[in-house]
Amino acid sequence: MTILNVAGISKSFGGVRAVADVSFSVAAGEMLALIGPNGAGKSTCFNMLNGQTAPDSGRVTLQGRDITGLSPRRIWRLGVGRTFQITATFASMTVRENVQVALLAHHRRVWRFLRPAFAWFGAEADGLLAQVGMAEQASRAAGVLAYGDLKRLELAIALANAPALLLMDEPTAGMAPSERVALMRLARDLASQRGIAVLFTEHDMDVVFGVADRILVLNRGELIAEGDGPAIRSDARVRAVYLGSGATSGGH
């Protein structure tokens, strides 16, 4: 089942085409990687899906519903979870409270002024934290977490929305190789269990070729290749503009 469908989206900044006529779709339970050189338009592409940027043309549909140009807030409401390249969590709250706030937003219980926040959705938050392996750290301040743990927390926050689509922007940036694989395997398991479509950008080729079902390659704003690992690896254009010889990326 197709969750996200992108049809011919384009975006220019000051006359420079950042993204040109890009189309693709992601199915439920599928892990789709978006790769390409720095400055190829990956971030712009991502921002058009999550509502940060409105496309100049083209259409984005989520489960058959047109979400082109909606605000990030509306897009979250329609079931899109996100993790950020540079983690964004609430530093003055504990790990559990971070998830609780996301649950309060998801269940539309934000406008409550009396009953203390800790009494809302505590068990549900703990359940999500257990799923990402963060149960033991639930009472710690989010501001003091190690980087890898922040990434897991972000995943739990994204899951609080019971998302149909999960957007992960360079999810393993700044992590150690072992943690990278662990995090993305976790994302993969969650995606297949819950039928979540996952779209992620990534520069670690071990991760990309290890977990992605399908790979899209963007160069200078255009989609230059699409396919599974072996197909992308043997694509001469992709090798030239992005993969190189593979000497410093594990032979991919």
Partner: peptide
């Protein structure tokens, strides 16, 4: 200390994340 206060504090801590979880 109620949900309202937490949501408010969330917008202060990280405007980006607050918007991404649908807080106005």
């Amino acid at each position: 200390y109620a949900p309202f206060g937490y949501a408010l504090r969330a917008t202060r801590d990280s405007a980006l994340r607050a918007e991404a979880i649908g807080l106005n």
